[in-house]
């Protein structure tokens, strides 16, 4: 682990060590502890040693110098670290020079980053270490609230039923698996609900969810809940419109999923300040009623209220009435 910590292992060694650490709870714990310690050490202030203390120390240490086996610093760590840094810089510079995608200019002076949207089938280039993890081997639980960034979605082969979610945490990670895999679902739910920095990323995530989870075999109440949460909490109207659009396209395979969708739509219809969101919500409820799905009393009451609400947009009122006209015996 010290070698891993000091970047003294080659790429294969690092990969092997990481794999072991992930599967071994004891090593995992120790690794976290070492990383924390390393970080704390890095953060400690450097204090000059008072001269008298240094003199005393040297005086005590020097007479024994002859019998002490000299500490020979293993050159590999530093050398490899330097080499890695050179490779990284050279690779980064090479890609920066070759690429045609956007070059990011930092506001405090130009700096090259690897940020670029991933196109389907396009290989991923990154100057960070990249790891590919099969979703099946991961715990579906996401601990804490990791700050994940640069989320991208990959479907290299649409026929193989596998998708990939790539993102940056402390390193660039791609999680691959079936859309039905619990780890993938949890990850997407997390991305939908916990990426406050960029509404674009969330919009892309919603579009991806719509494309992938519209298939009845992938219907999942957790995804529905996540979209409902976006619809309820998101400030960005464009994202909310996307969320309501997607919600109505997801198949109501599970009762709880249908309930969550309905509740989210009712909430949006009642409370969303944007008339377009309300229009889409009422249209979705009308479609649900039309397709034979039952509307509970709360939904009926909300639609009733909307239809009669004099200061509501007339189109919303008419759509509410149309939705109510589809209600049949349950």
């Amino acid at each position: 682990m010290p070698l891993l910590l000091t970047w003294s292992l080659d790429a294969a060694g690092r990969e092997a060590a990481h794999r072991h650490i992930e599967t071994c709870p004891e090593c995992h714990e120790e690794w976290l502890s070492m990383k924390d310690t390393w970080q704390v050490l890095a953060d400690l202030p450097q204090v000059d040693v008072p001269p008298h203390v240094r003199d005393r120390f040297l005086a005590a240490a020097l007479p024994q110098q002859a019998v002490v086996i000299p500490f020979r610093r293993r050159p590999a760590a530093r050398w490899l670290a330097q080499a890695a840094a050179v490779v990284v810089l050279a690779g980064g510079a090479y890609f920066a020079g070759q690429r045609t995608a956007p070059v990011r200019l930092a506001p405090r002076g130009a700096a090259v980053t690897a940020a670029q949207p991933m196109m389907q089938g396009q290989p991923v280039y990154s100057i960070a270490e990249t790891r590919v993890l099969p979703a099946a081997s991961m715990s579906p639980n996401i601990e804490g609230r990791p700050d994940i960034e640069n989320v991208q979605f990959v479907d290299a082969d649409p026929r193989d039923g596998q998708i990939g979610v790539a993102f940056d945490v402390t390193q660039h990670v791609t999680v691959t698996g079936s859309p039905a895999d619990k780890s993938v679902v949890r990850l997407l739910s997390y991305v939908l609900q916990n990426d406050p920095k960029s509404s674009t990323a969330r919009s892309q995530a919603i579009d991806w969810v719509r494309q992938t989870y519209s298939e009845p075999r992938y219907a999942n109440p957790e995804i529905t809940q996540a979209l409902a949460s976006v619809l309820h909490n998101e400030q960005h109207e464009g994202v909310r419109i996307r969320a309501v659009d997607t919600l109505q396209k997801l198949p109501p395979k599970f009762t709880s999923s249908g309930d969550a969708t309905r509740e989210a739509l009712i909430d949006a219809l009642k409370n969303d300040p944007n008339p377009s969101v309300r229009i889409k919500a009422v249209e979705a409820l009308a479609r649900m009623a039309n397709s034979g799905q039952s509307l509970d009393q709360a939904a009926v009451d909300t639609l009733r209220q909307k239809a009669a609400q004099g200061d509501e947009n007339l189109y919303v009122r008419v759509k509410a009435a149309e939705a109510l006209s589809k209600i049949g015996p349950r």
Binding site: V103, R104, L105, A106, P107, R108, A110, K197
Partner: peptide, 17 residues
């Protein structure tokens, strides 16, 4: 957002913060 920035493919633009 402290990390936010303007991204541009065009060089030579002045940045003020």
């Amino acid at each position: 957002d402290e990390d936010a920035e303007i991204r541009s493919d065009f060089a030579g633009l002045a940045v003020r913060r």
